[in-house]
Protein backbone atom coordinates (compact mmCIF):
# COMPACT_ATOMS: atom_id res chain seq x y z
CA UNK A 1 0.00 0.00 0.00
CA UNK A 2 2.70 2.45 0.98
CA UNK A 3 4.73 1.40 -2.04
CA UNK A 4 1.76 2.14 -4.28
CA UNK A 5 1.33 5.57 -2.67
CA UNK A 6 4.99 6.32 -3.09
CA UNK A 7 4.81 5.24 -6.73
CA UNK A 8 1.88 7.55 -7.39
CA UNK A 9 3.61 10.41 -5.63
CA UNK A 10 6.79 9.87 -7.58
CA UNK A 11 5.18 9.58 -11.02
CA UNK A 12 5.05 12.62 -13.30
CA UNK A 13 1.88 14.60 -12.60
CA UNK A 14 -0.90 13.66 -14.98
CA UNK A 15 -3.68 15.76 -13.46
CA UNK A 16 -4.67 19.33 -14.15
CA UNK A 17 -1.93 21.89 -14.66
CA UNK A 18 -1.65 25.65 -14.71
CA UNK A 19 0.56 28.03 -16.67
CA UNK A 20 3.58 28.92 -14.60
CA UNK A 21 6.49 31.10 -15.67
CA UNK A 22 9.47 30.02 -13.59
CA UNK A 23 11.90 32.47 -15.17
CA UNK A 24 9.57 35.42 -14.70
CA UNK A 25 9.05 34.36 -11.10
CA UNK A 26 12.81 34.18 -10.55
CA UNK A 27 13.44 37.61 -12.07
CA UNK A 28 10.62 39.12 -10.02
CA UNK A 29 12.05 37.59 -6.85
CA UNK A 30 15.50 38.95 -7.66
CA UNK A 31 14.12 42.44 -8.25
CA UNK A 32 12.06 42.43 -5.04
CA UNK A 33 14.90 41.10 -2.89
CA UNK A 34 17.34 43.58 -4.42
CA UNK A 35 15.02 46.50 -3.73
CA UNK A 36 14.38 45.32 -0.17
CA UNK A 37 18.11 44.87 0.43
CA UNK A 38 18.94 48.31 -0.98
CA UNK A 39 16.19 49.81 1.19
CA UNK A 40 17.44 48.26 4.43
CA UNK A 41 21.07 49.02 3.56
CA UNK A 42 20.22 52.68 2.93
CA UNK A 43 18.09 52.96 6.04
CA UNK A 44 20.20 51.04 8.52
CA UNK A 45 23.69 50.43 7.09
CA UNK A 46 25.60 47.60 8.74
CA UNK A 47 27.39 47.05 12.04
CA UNK A 48 31.04 48.02 12.23
CA UNK A 49 32.30 48.46 15.78
CA UNK A 50 35.97 49.38 15.54
CA UNK A 51 38.46 46.63 16.16
CA UNK A 52 40.35 46.76 19.44
CA UNK A 53 44.09 47.21 19.08
CA UNK A 54 46.77 46.41 21.61
CA UNK A 55 47.48 50.13 21.65
CA UNK A 56 43.89 50.86 22.67
CA UNK A 57 44.01 48.19 25.35
CA UNK A 58 47.37 49.29 26.77
CA UNK A 59 46.37 52.95 26.85
CA UNK A 60 42.86 52.42 28.22
CA UNK A 61 43.67 49.71 30.78
CA UNK A 62 47.45 49.69 31.40
CA UNK A 63 47.21 47.74 34.68
CA UNK A 64 45.20 44.98 33.00
CA UNK A 65 47.62 44.80 30.09
CA UNK A 66 50.62 44.75 32.43
CA UNK A 67 49.17 41.99 34.61
CA UNK A 68 48.24 39.94 31.53
CA UNK A 69 51.82 40.25 30.25
CA UNK A 70 53.11 38.97 33.58
CA UNK A 71 50.72 36.03 33.33
CA UNK A 72 51.97 35.23 29.83
CA UNK A 73 55.54 35.15 31.18
CA UNK A 74 54.47 32.95 34.10
CA UNK A 75 52.34 30.70 31.89
CA UNK A 76 49.32 31.28 34.13
CA UNK A 77 47.13 32.97 31.50
CA UNK A 78 44.19 31.30 29.80
CA UNK A 79 46.33 30.54 26.77
CA UNK A 80 49.26 29.41 28.91
CA UNK A 81 47.16 26.67 30.48
CA UNK A 82 44.96 25.89 27.48
CA UNK A 83 46.35 22.64 26.13
CA UNK A 84 45.82 21.48 22.56
CA UNK A 85 45.94 22.79 19.90
CA UNK A 86 48.23 25.49 21.36
CA UNK A 87 50.38 23.67 23.92
CA UNK A 88 50.53 20.66 26.22
CA UNK A 89 49.82 22.49 29.46
CA UNK A 90 46.55 20.62 30.08
CA UNK A 91 44.40 17.85 28.67
CA UNK A 92 41.67 20.28 27.68
CA UNK A 93 37.99 19.38 27.70
CA UNK A 94 36.78 15.84 27.22
CA UNK A 95 33.84 13.74 26.15
CA UNK A 96 34.11 11.22 28.94
CA UNK A 97 37.24 9.23 28.13
CA UNK A 98 37.67 10.97 24.77
CA UNK A 99 40.12 13.86 24.69
CA UNK A 100 39.65 14.83 21.06
CA UNK A 101 41.62 18.07 21.19
CA UNK A 102 44.57 16.34 22.81
CA UNK A 103 44.27 13.49 20.33
CA UNK A 104 44.62 15.88 17.40
CA UNK A 105 47.76 17.30 18.93
CA UNK A 106 49.42 20.71 19.11
CA UNK A 107 48.78 21.95 15.59
CA UNK A 108 49.07 25.68 16.33
CA UNK A 109 51.92 25.93 18.80
CA UNK A 110 51.81 29.05 20.92
CA UNK A 111 54.62 29.83 23.35
CA UNK A 112 53.18 32.64 25.45
CA UNK A 113 56.59 33.66 26.82
CA UNK A 114 58.43 34.05 23.55
CA UNK A 115 55.62 34.63 21.05
CA UNK A 116 53.77 37.19 23.16
CA UNK A 117 56.55 38.97 25.05
CA UNK A 118 60.19 38.22 24.29
CA UNK A 119 60.14 38.05 20.46
CA UNK A 120 58.08 41.25 20.07
CA UNK A 121 60.45 43.04 22.48
CA UNK A 122 63.44 42.04 20.37
CA UNK A 123 61.92 43.75 17.31
CA UNK A 124 62.23 47.26 18.75
CA UNK A 125 64.98 49.45 20.18
CA UNK A 126 64.35 49.28 23.91
CA UNK A 127 65.29 51.76 26.61
CA UNK A 128 68.39 50.93 28.72
CA UNK A 129 66.65 49.11 31.61
CA UNK A 130 64.41 47.09 29.28
CA UNK A 131 67.35 46.15 27.03
CA UNK A 132 69.29 45.02 30.12
CA UNK A 133 66.28 43.07 31.38
CA UNK A 134 65.98 41.32 28.04
CA UNK A 135 69.66 40.33 28.16
CA UNK A 136 69.30 39.04 31.71
CA UNK A 137 66.22 37.00 30.74
CA UNK A 138 67.79 35.52 27.66
CA UNK A 139 70.96 34.50 29.46
CA UNK A 140 69.18 32.57 32.23
CA UNK A 141 67.78 29.07 32.19
CA UNK A 142 64.08 28.33 31.88
CA UNK A 143 63.75 27.19 35.48
CA UNK A 144 64.98 30.51 36.82
CA UNK A 145 62.82 32.38 34.31
CA UNK A 146 59.74 30.49 35.43
CA UNK A 147 60.51 31.08 39.12
CA UNK A 148 60.92 34.84 38.60
CA UNK A 149 57.73 35.15 36.58
CA UNK A 150 55.65 33.01 38.95
CA UNK A 151 56.89 34.93 42.00
CA UNK A 152 55.98 38.23 40.43
CA UNK A 153 52.67 36.97 39.06
CA UNK A 154 51.61 35.80 42.53
CA UNK A 155 52.78 39.04 44.18
CA UNK A 156 50.96 41.17 41.62
CA UNK A 157 47.76 39.18 42.03
CA UNK A 158 48.01 39.65 45.82
CA UNK A 159 48.45 43.39 45.27
CA UNK A 160 45.28 43.50 43.16
CA UNK A 161 47.22 44.18 39.98
CA UNK A 162 48.66 47.39 41.43
CA UNK A 163 52.35 47.18 40.54
CA UNK A 164 53.24 50.02 42.92
CA UNK A 165 52.06 47.96 45.89
CA UNK A 166 54.08 44.85 45.11
CA UNK A 167 56.70 44.26 47.82
CA UNK A 168 60.25 43.67 46.63
CA UNK A 169 61.19 40.09 45.91
CA UNK A 170 63.03 37.73 43.61
CA UNK A 171 61.40 38.79 40.37
CA UNK A 172 64.45 39.03 38.10
CA UNK A 173 63.80 41.20 35.05
CA UNK A 174 60.05 40.39 34.90
CA UNK A 175 58.77 43.86 35.96
CA UNK A 176 61.07 45.60 33.46
CA UNK A 177 60.10 43.26 30.64
CA UNK A 178 56.40 43.73 31.33
CA UNK A 179 56.85 47.50 31.57
CA UNK A 180 58.77 47.41 28.29
CA UNK A 181 55.99 45.52 26.54
CA UNK A 182 53.43 47.96 27.97
CA UNK A 183 55.38 50.92 26.51
CA UNK A 184 55.69 49.10 23.22
CA UNK A 185 51.95 48.41 23.12
CA UNK A 186 51.09 51.99 24.10
CA UNK A 187 53.30 53.26 21.28
CA UNK A 188 51.33 51.04 18.89
CA UNK A 189 54.13 48.76 17.77
CA UNK A 190 52.98 45.53 19.45
CA UNK A 191 50.06 44.84 17.08
CA UNK A 192 52.29 44.37 14.06
CA UNK A 193 55.06 42.58 15.95
CA UNK A 194 52.64 40.00 17.39
CA UNK A 195 51.23 39.26 13.97
CA UNK A 196 54.45 39.16 11.97
CA UNK A 197 56.63 37.36 14.54
CA UNK A 198 59.63 38.63 12.61
CA UNK A 199 58.28 37.67 9.19
CA UNK A 200 57.00 39.61 6.22
CA UNK A 201 53.84 37.88 4.99
CA UNK A 202 51.42 36.82 7.68
CA UNK A 203 47.69 36.27 7.74
CA UNK A 204 47.19 34.26 10.92
CA UNK A 205 45.87 36.32 13.83
CA UNK A 206 45.84 33.46 16.33
CA UNK A 207 48.54 34.87 18.59
CA UNK A 208 47.02 38.35 18.76
CA UNK A 209 43.56 37.01 19.46
CA UNK A 210 44.72 34.64 22.19
CA UNK A 211 46.82 37.29 23.93
CA UNK A 212 44.00 39.83 23.78
CA UNK A 213 41.51 37.30 25.09
CA UNK A 214 43.72 36.59 28.11
CA UNK A 215 43.13 40.13 29.42
CA UNK A 216 39.98 41.57 30.95
CA UNK A 217 39.64 44.60 28.69
CA UNK A 218 38.55 42.64 25.60
CA UNK A 219 36.13 40.51 27.63
CA UNK A 220 34.65 43.60 29.30
CA UNK A 221 33.96 45.15 25.89
CA UNK A 222 32.22 41.98 24.82
CA UNK A 223 30.12 41.89 27.99
CA UNK A 224 29.12 45.50 27.41
CA UNK A 225 27.89 44.58 23.93
CA UNK A 226 26.10 41.50 25.24
CA UNK A 227 28.20 39.13 23.17
CA UNK A 228 29.16 36.65 25.90
CA UNK A 229 28.14 33.08 25.15
CA UNK A 230 26.60 32.72 28.61
CA UNK A 231 23.98 35.35 27.70
CA UNK A 232 23.00 34.14 24.20
CA UNK A 233 25.82 36.31 22.83
CA UNK A 234 26.38 34.00 19.88
CA UNK A 235 23.10 35.23 18.41
CA UNK A 236 23.81 38.88 19.00
CA UNK A 237 25.43 41.62 17.02
CA UNK A 238 26.98 44.91 18.07
CA UNK A 239 24.58 47.85 18.18
CA UNK A 240 20.94 47.19 17.40
CA UNK A 241 21.63 45.03 14.36
CA UNK A 242 20.23 41.54 13.98
CA UNK A 243 22.74 38.81 14.74
CA UNK A 244 23.13 35.19 13.71
CA UNK A 245 19.67 34.32 14.97
CA UNK A 246 19.99 30.95 13.23
CA UNK A 247 22.45 29.96 15.96
CA UNK A 248 19.64 30.07 18.53
CA UNK A 249 19.64 26.35 19.20
CA UNK A 250 23.41 26.21 19.54
CA UNK A 251 23.28 29.16 21.91
CA UNK A 252 20.35 27.71 23.85
CA UNK A 253 22.28 24.79 25.34
CA UNK A 254 24.73 27.13 27.05
CA UNK A 255 21.86 28.72 29.00
CA UNK A 256 20.51 25.60 30.70
CA UNK A 257 21.85 23.18 33.31
CA UNK A 258 24.19 21.40 33.37
CA UNK A 259 25.91 23.34 30.61
CA UNK A 260 25.52 26.79 32.17
CA UNK A 261 27.66 25.80 35.14
CA UNK A 262 31.33 25.53 34.21
CA UNK A 263 32.14 23.89 37.55
CA UNK A 264 29.78 20.95 37.25
CA UNK A 265 31.33 17.70 36.12
CA UNK A 266 31.30 16.02 33.72
CA UNK A 267 28.99 18.06 31.47
CA UNK A 268 29.20 21.68 32.57
CA UNK A 269 32.99 21.76 32.61
CA UNK A 270 33.07 20.21 29.14
CA UNK A 271 30.06 22.07 27.78
CA UNK A 272 31.87 23.15 24.59
CA UNK A 273 32.49 19.58 23.53
CA UNK A 274 29.11 18.16 24.56
CA UNK A 275 27.17 20.95 22.90
CA UNK A 276 29.20 20.40 19.73
CA UNK A 277 28.17 16.74 19.82
CA UNK A 278 24.52 17.59 20.52
CA UNK A 279 24.42 20.08 17.65
CA UNK A 280 26.17 17.67 15.34
CA UNK A 281 23.56 15.03 16.16
CA UNK A 282 20.66 17.48 15.76
CA UNK A 283 22.03 18.73 12.43
CA UNK A 284 22.24 15.15 11.24
CA UNK A 285 18.70 14.68 12.51
CA UNK A 286 17.51 17.59 10.38
CA UNK A 287 19.24 16.15 7.34
CA UNK A 288 17.70 12.70 7.73
CA UNK A 289 14.41 13.90 9.25
CA UNK A 290 12.23 12.02 6.72
CA UNK A 291 13.69 8.79 8.10
CA UNK A 292 12.95 9.52 11.75
CA UNK A 293 9.78 7.78 12.97
CA UNK A 294 7.40 10.09 14.77
CA UNK A 295 8.85 13.30 13.42
CA UNK A 296 8.15 12.31 9.83
CA UNK A 297 4.50 11.60 10.68
CA UNK A 298 3.87 15.07 12.11
CA UNK A 299 2.79 16.62 8.78
CA UNK A 300 0.07 13.95 8.52
CA UNK A 301 -1.18 14.60 12.04
CA UNK A 302 -0.95 18.38 12.16
CA UNK A 303 -2.63 19.15 8.88
CA UNK A 304 -1.03 22.37 7.83
CA UNK A 305 -0.96 20.90 4.31
CA UNK A 306 -4.72 21.46 4.16
CA UNK A 307 -3.89 25.20 4.12
CA UNK A 308 -1.13 24.89 1.52
CA UNK A 309 -3.33 23.01 -0.92
CA UNK A 310 -6.70 24.41 0.13
CA UNK A 311 -7.60 25.50 -3.43
CA UNK A 312 -6.76 22.13 -4.89
CA UNK A 313 -8.57 20.20 -2.19
CA UNK A 314 -11.62 22.40 -2.69
CA UNK A 315 -11.61 22.04 -6.45
CA UNK A 316 -11.15 18.30 -6.26
CA UNK A 317 -13.51 17.82 -3.34
CA UNK A 318 -10.81 16.09 -1.35
Amino acid sequence: MNDRRSELEAAPWSGRTRRYDLIKEGVAALVVVTIATVALSTLFGSPDDKQITFKEWAVAAPADFYATTVQELAGSSGTGGYGAPYNTASDGVNLGPLHLAKLMGVTHPVDTVNDFVITPLTTVVNSGPVADALKQWQSSDSKTQAAWATNYDNALTKANQDATKVPSGNYGPVPQLSGGLLSMAQAGSLDGALLSQGNYFQSDNTKQTLFMGDGSYFNDQSTASNLQGSTWGMMNETGRYPGQAWLWLYSFWYQIPPFNNGDSHPFGANADAWIMVIMGALSLGLIIMPLIPGVRSLPYKIKIHRLVWKNYYQEENL
Binding site: P47, D48, D49, K50, Q51, I52, A84, P85, G92, V93, L95, L100, A101, L103, M104, G105, T107, H108, N205, T209, L210, M212, G213, F218, Q221, S222, S225, L227, Q228, G229, G233, M234, E237, T238, N270, D272, A273, I275, M276, V277
Partner: peptide, 24 residues
Amino acid sequence: TNFDSQWISYEAKDGFNSVGIGSR
Protein backbone atom coordinates in the same frame (compact mmCIF):
# COMPACT_ATOMS: atom_id res chain seq x y z
CA THR B 1 37.88 42.88 10.43
CA ASN B 2 36.08 44.64 13.28
CA PHE B 3 35.45 44.07 16.97
CA ASP B 4 32.66 41.61 16.22
CA SER B 5 34.95 39.30 14.27
CA GLN B 6 37.70 39.62 16.89
CA TRP B 7 35.28 38.49 19.55
CA ILE B 8 33.53 35.78 17.54
CA SER B 9 36.84 34.18 16.62
CA TYR B 10 38.03 34.29 20.23
CA GLU B 11 34.79 32.84 21.57
CA ALA B 12 34.18 30.25 18.86
CA LYS B 13 37.65 28.71 18.98
CA ASP B 14 36.79 26.87 22.20
CA GLY B 15 33.86 25.08 20.59
CA PHE B 16 35.90 23.89 17.63
CA ASN B 17 38.98 23.09 19.73
CA SER B 18 36.91 21.06 22.19
CA VAL B 19 36.23 18.32 19.64
CA GLY B 20 39.53 18.55 17.77
CA ILE B 21 38.14 20.40 14.75
CA GLY B 22 40.17 23.43 15.80
CA SER B 23 43.34 21.59 14.92
CA ARG B 24 42.46 21.93 11.23
